[in-house]
């Protein structure tokens, strides 16, 4: 008689052997739930992330900058769609995910709850926010769930342009007039700390990390990624001749890393809880866009049905 292998053992073995888990494979419910939460949160971040930059499309300083920003925001829409599509393979519907975003049940990256006050913020976002996102996303290309890993490969290929165009904006401003350089410095001052918060709570306060690493959803801890980001970014700021707003930032010869100052975690949790500068504005913009698009969605569906009926006649 054939013995049915224990599905949990089979799953553990696949993960240990670096095989990918695919949609119809058996998986533990908490693994599925964690992935749905993480992938949909990631998708929502791409979608809400269009709002702070969308704010500057009509006011970009040149046609070139405008075309670039438009292409970047379109990519973000695309990234959101790749990710929603990956999450749907786990059995959650697109409608449900959107409803959870709009009701406030689902989260998105807290960074997008900060305002974009000047054109220099487009530079700082591309350079720092997308830079931090890349640090997070590159290891996710090897995440254990196949559709998520494949979506991340596609995203990472496109993300590098986002960071480089941001750095180019910063370079142009930093080499420009006194006022332009001051704009760039001001943007760095405002974005630096929220960007460091993007990596999430400290390792000892991040209860899900150990399990996610065991499942190989996550490959590096929050603090490891944050450190990598700081190490990579400091020389980039030095080249721009801009000052990172952290008096404790200092190269540590013994560690081979930069030491940096304490993060204001109170601010982080306030923003996560919905009390950041733009939380309400962002959610309202999403809800409004969705509500105002309802007649379009219905009309398109009705038109498609009518066309099918006319074929069948």
């Amino acid at each position: 008689m054939m013995q049915t292998p224990d599905p949990q053992l089979l799953f553990d073995l696949k993960v240990a052997e670096e095989q990918r888990i695919e949609p119809k494979d058996w998986m533990p419910e908490p693994y599925r739930r964690t992935l749905i939460r993480q992938i949909s949160q990631h998708a929502h971040s791409e979608i809400v992330g269009m709002l702070p930059e969308g704010n500057w499309i009509t006011r970009a300083p040149s046609l070139r900058r405008k075309a670039v920003l438009l292409a970047k925001v379109q990519d973000e829409a695309g990234h959101g769609l790749y990710l929603y599509s990956a999450a749907e393979t786990l059995g959650v519907s697109r409608e449900q995910m959107i409803a959870d975003l709009h009701s406030g049940k689902a989260k998105y990256s807290s960074i997008f709850n900060y305002p974009t006050l000047s054109w220099a913020d487009m530079g700082a976002i591309g350079w720092l926010v997308d830079g931090a996102a890349i640090m997070n996303q590159v290891p996710l290309c090897r995440t254990s769930y196949g559709p998520y890993a494949r979506a991340m490969v596609r995203i990472c290929k496109e993300e590098s342009f986002h960071q480089r165009q941001g750095y180019e904006i910063m370079m142009t401003l930093a080499k420009g007039s006194q006022e332009q350089k001051a704009m760039a410095q001001d943007a760095l001052n405002r974005w630096w700390w929220p960007v460091l918060m993007m990596f999430g709570p400290k390792d000892d306060e991040s209860p899900n990390t150990a399990q996610s690493m065991q499942w190989k959803i996550k490959r590096f801890s929050n603090d490891e990624l944050r450190q990598k980001f700081v190490d990579a970014t400091v020389p980039q700021a030095e080249y721009l001749d801009l000052t990172i707003p952290d008096p404790d930032l200092k190269w540590n010869e013994a560690r081979g890393h930069y030491d940096f100052g304490a993060i204001n975690w109170e601010e982080f949790w306030e923003v996560v809880k919905g009390n950041g500068p733009c939380n309400r504005q962002r959610l309202e913009a999403r809800q409004k866009a969705h509500a105002e698009g309802e007649w379009v969605r219905e009309a398109a569906m009705a038109y498609a049905k009518k066309r099918v009926m006319s074929y069948e006649l």
């Binding site: 695309g78 599509s85 038109y303």
Partner: peptide
């Protein structure tokens, strides 16, 4: 990957915009 669309024509155009930029 996948996407949502009302019919094949829209699926084709959305696929172009989402997957072949």
């Amino acid at each position: 990957g996948s996407l949502h669309a009302v019919d094949a024509q829209m699926a084709m155009e959305n696929a172009r915009d989402v997957y072949t930029r």
